[in-house]
């Protein structure tokens, strides 16, 4: 059996060798360090879930579509960055190019799959995006095979020790860049013409059209934006998890859980949902059993839907008569 591994994403060698492994239990200080360790890994994963979840929420708000292909954008981001880096490109350049490439793929996906399906019902849109996800995943398998690829961390391999718990520099990168992206996104949505137009188009498409906003362009833009966010999440997590063709599906579903838990309408809510989910998962897999770790996300999803369907932060949807 694998040693109790606080973070799903850590490879086993790193986990077993890491000084954070709980060796002695029952000692309060050790316990505290252990909890801190779960918190670190939870926040790391949570930030990734948040980025993916924001992608869901941007598309949902613009189109009322749940894009089940979102997770595949994450996978593509990771694998494209890895491929570019292995060609000798510097990490930042590979990062930037990978995100741009996936953004383009997001645009193509919107154009071919979503816009062609004008009269589709919610159910057929679900099937279309799932089909798109299957297609993208299949293509990735054709290109990259079933092997896992590594991407070097952005800086340093050595875990930093903090109050008895360890944290990888990459985790700090993930958290910092997530904060940067979220703040940037909020600023974009509230202070730029394009961002305001996007919000207007999702708030009331008819009125937006009347004041001259091209709603179809906003929909297109929402797909580009969420593909970019997904790809960024993929590049960020790749040094920790490795990049494989089928890494996107579960990550996508987790991001989706984060979005629903936080409330699809609010970016801040999705971030909160993602972090909450990440920490809950880390605690559950550390303290209960790592096998049920994936179930935790969906259990929280159900609890939120049953008791607070508008999400933790979201407003109650207004009654339509």
């Amino acid at each position: 059996m694998a040693p109790p591994c606080p973070a799903f994403f850590w490879t086993e060698q790193q986990c077993a060798g890491g000084p954070g492994s709980p060796l002695i239990s029952g000692i309060p200080l050790e316990k505290l360090a252990e909890l801190l360790q779960y918190l670190f890994s939870g926040l790391t994963n949570g930030a990734i879930y948040a980025l993916i979840g924001i992608g869901f929420s941007i598309i949902f708000n613009a189109t009322a579509i749940i894009n089940f292909a979102q997770g595949e954008f994450v996978m593509l981001g990771a694998l494209v960055a890895i491929a570019l880096h292995s060609l000798g490109l510097s990490l930042p350049l590979a990062f930037g190019l990978a995100v741009s490439a996936v953004t383009l793929i997001g645009l193509v996906f919107e154009r071919l799959a979503i816009r062609s399906a004008r009269e589709a019902t919610a159910i057929s849109l679900i099937i279309i995006t799932v089909g798109g996800g299957v297609l993208i995943k299949g293509l990735a398998m054709l290109i990259w095979g079933k092997d896992a690829y590594t991407l070097p961390p952005f800086s340093g391999q050595e875990p930093l020790v903090f109050a008895g718990a360890t944290i990888l520099p990459q985790s700090l990168w993930i958290m910092a860049l997530t904060i940067l992206l979220v703040v940037g996104l909020e600023a974009f949505l509230h202070f730029t013409i394009l961002g305001k137009a996007m919000r207007a188009a999702s708030f009331n498409p008819v009125a937006a059209r009347l004041v001259g906003i091209r709603v179809s362009q906003m929909v297109q833009f929402s797909f580009a934006l969420s593909a970019a966010l997904g790809a960024a999440a993929g590049v960020l997590i790749a040094p920790i998890t490795l990049g494989v063709y089928d890494m996107g599906t579960m990550l996508g579903l987790k991001g989706f859980c984060a979005a629903v838990i936080g409330g699809l309408g609010s970016i801040f809510g999705v971030v909160l949902g993602g972090l909450l989910l990440g920490v809950a998962e880390a605690l559950a897999s550390g303290l209960i059993s790592s096998g049920y770790r994936d179930a935790v996300a969906f259990l929280i999803l159900l609890l939120v839907l049953f008791f607070r369907p508008q999400g933790l932060i979201g407003r109650r949807p207004s009654r339509s008569s």
Binding site: A113, S116, A117, E119, A120, T121, S124, L125, I127, I128, V130, G131, G132, G133, V134, L135, I136, K137, G138, L139, M141, L142
Partner: peptide
């Protein structure tokens, strides 16, 4: 073989887009 999944995904999409 390996193309199976790709074609399946494609068929799902095409049927739903054109014959919803």
């Amino acid at each position: 073989h390996d193309l199976e999944v790709v074609i399946f995904g494609l068929i799902l999409m095409v049927v739903m887009i054109f014959l919803p």
